[in-house]
């Protein structure tokens, strides 16, 4: 194991010029430390980044809220900027892990770790978040929705890292919001099903619907087919059998030690129904 603590961004980039698929960035450590202890990560190059100020903090930049990748969940929960602009996002994060882990776990880490159960991702997906991905020579901005490529895999090269998460300042404006994280207890739990939703209604028709789920696929994702089906329909025009059929196409829940696929699927159906009815 090799441990590096760069002094600044320049030092960071110097250390990541070469591609190295055993490179890990350490910030809060709530996932990586466990993987090191379990021997899942070994003989790796660990670069510590939590102290780098360019990666920290919450700012308003024009029409966006920009959250540094290593900003921890407590900082987001306590942020005035988030409270004023993205109150639904802030409120929903209260169910993230536990108060203790919130002080350590970072928003960028939760995304980059790529768990199908990542708590922040369904929320960020319905808020149309983008990621600022940087390397020594390049900065690119991509939609979070295009970030994941499979179970714990993403489009980043090993000489890149997430610098910030960009959320449109008005992402929640005018929407009815919905968030439900379902697990085996109220705190410190890994979700069995997560649903985040935004909707607005005009003349009793859904003009916009945004839905994202976690723990039901290899990575959290938007339910575009259902969104499309629901748009411009009123509640009575919706055929819920059709919604269930589309959901079946969009999710691939599994049975494991924690839960059963039938349960996960039906809970998701129920949550969508409640989201639309409320």
């Amino acid at each position: 194991m090799k441990f590096i603590r760069p002094n600044d961004m320049e030092g960071l980039f110097q250390n990541m010029e070469e591609n190295n698929d055993r490179r890990y960035f350490l910030a809060g450590g709530t996932d990586i430390n466990v993987q090191i202890k379990n021997g899942v990560i070994k003989n790796a190059e660990i670069i510590y980044i939590k102290h780098l100020k360019e990666l920290n903090g919450i700012q308003i930049v024009k029409d966006d809220i920009v959250i540094g990748a290593v900003t921890n969940i407590t900082e987001i929960l306590n942020s005035k900027i988030i409270k004023e602009n993205l109150p639904f996002f802030q409120r929903s994060l209260e169910s993230f892990a536990s108060p203790l882990l919130q002080t350590s776990a970072t928003i960028g880490g939760n995304i980059a770790n790529g768990s199908p159960t990542a708590d922040v991702v369904p929320l960020l997906l319905v808020l149309d978040a983008k990621l600022e991905i940087v390397s020594k020579t390049q900065t690119r901005i991509i939609e979070l929705n295009n970030f994941f490529t499979g179970y714990k895999t993403n489009i980043m090269k090993t000489n890149e890292l997430i610098r910030s998460i960009i959320i449109p300042r008005k992402a929640e404006n005018g929407f009815d919001t919905y968030f439900e994280k379902v697990g085996s207890r109220k705190s410190l739990m890994i979700s069995k099903v997560t649903l985040a939703g935004l909707k607005n209604i005009s003349h009793s028709k859904f003009t916009t619907v945004k839905l994202a789920v976690g723990s039901l696929n290899e990575y959290p994702r938007r339910l575009y087919k259902i969104e499309e089906y629901l748009t411009d329909k009123s509640l009575i025009e919706i055929n819920f059998l059709k919604v269930e059929e589309l959901l079946n196409e969009e999710i691939t829940p599994i049975t494991d030690l924690r839960s059963d696929k039938e349960y996960r699927y039906h809970v998701c159906v129920n949550l969508i129904r409640t989201f639309l009815n409320e």
Partner: peptide
């Protein structure tokens, strides 16, 4: 209510992230 340690076909649990001890929130 919630504590179980073994699931047929999936075996025994390894730690407290799966074994659902209640928290003070529950």
């Amino acid at each position: 209510l919630c504590e179980f340690f073994y699931k047929a076909g999936y075996g025994r649990m390894h730690g407290f992230s799966d074994y659902a001890l209640p928290t003070t929130m529950d």
